[in-house]
């Protein structure tokens, strides 16, 4: 899971799919007003596109797409967007999350509600995406530490030697020792 897939089919397919999934995620997010979808679904799709990159390209290569370690902070940013939208309405005289009271000039209450829901959805999207990526990275990290004692992870297994076939009898992968091979 930490190293790249050795199959060129997987790598090409995932590289082609990642931007498409992100585009669909934006569509789901912005179309949430009129159709099924919205913040949570868009955020999950964005997180899935990053996780697919982690799975197929390996942890090292997919750092280009999304760096490990910034996800937790950005998920807090999502919560901050959500809460500050609600609190802005509260401070301007309405209830918490009553979008009609948002202190934005030049908009009537329906327009304010539209904008407020969009802000809330943006916060949910960012929060969900970053939280899911943070959970995934945490799981991969802890698994890597657990199996590092059993199988030393070769540093050289990066993109350069992806096409090289591995010799027979080598460890069946980073998760190998934890599972027993299934008997035919």
């Amino acid at each position: 899971m930490k190293s790249a897939s050795t199959s060129p089919i997987i790598q090409v397919a995932i590289r082609g799919l990642m931007p498409v999934i992100q585009l669909v995620a934006l569509y789901v997010f912005f179309h949430g007003h009129y159709s099924p979808g919205g913040g949570f679904q868009g955020g999950v799709l964005l997180a899935v596109s990053v996780m697919l990159g982690r799975l197929a390209l390996g942890m090292d290569m997919s750092q280009v797409v999304f760096r490990t370690g910034i996800a937790v902070g950005l998920s807090a940013l999502g919560v901050l967007i959500y809460a500050s939208t609600g609190l802005a309405a509260l401070l301007a005289g309405g209830e918490f999350l009553n979008y009609a009271f948002l202190p934005i000039p030049g908009l009537d209450p329906p327009g304010l509600r539209n904008l407020g829901i969009l802000l809330i959805e943006a916060g949910v999207t960012v929060g969900v995406m970053m939280a899911l990526i943070a959970i995934y990275d945490e799981i991969v990290d802890s698994r890597g530490e657990a199996s590092a004692t059993a199988t030393p992870e070769p540093e050289a297994r990066r993109m350069e030697d992806v096409r090289k076939p591995r010799e027979k009898g080598v460890d069946p992968g980073p998760e190998g020792p934890e599972r027993t091979p299934v008997a035919p």
Binding site: S5, S7, I9, I10, A13, I14, P172, G173, G176, R179, P181, V182, P184
Partner: peptide
Amino acid sequence: VATHQMTRRALAYGLKPW
């Protein structure tokens, strides 16, 4: 692609083809 990856993993874990 999903089927390809599933069968690859099965082969890597030592599942013998029939």
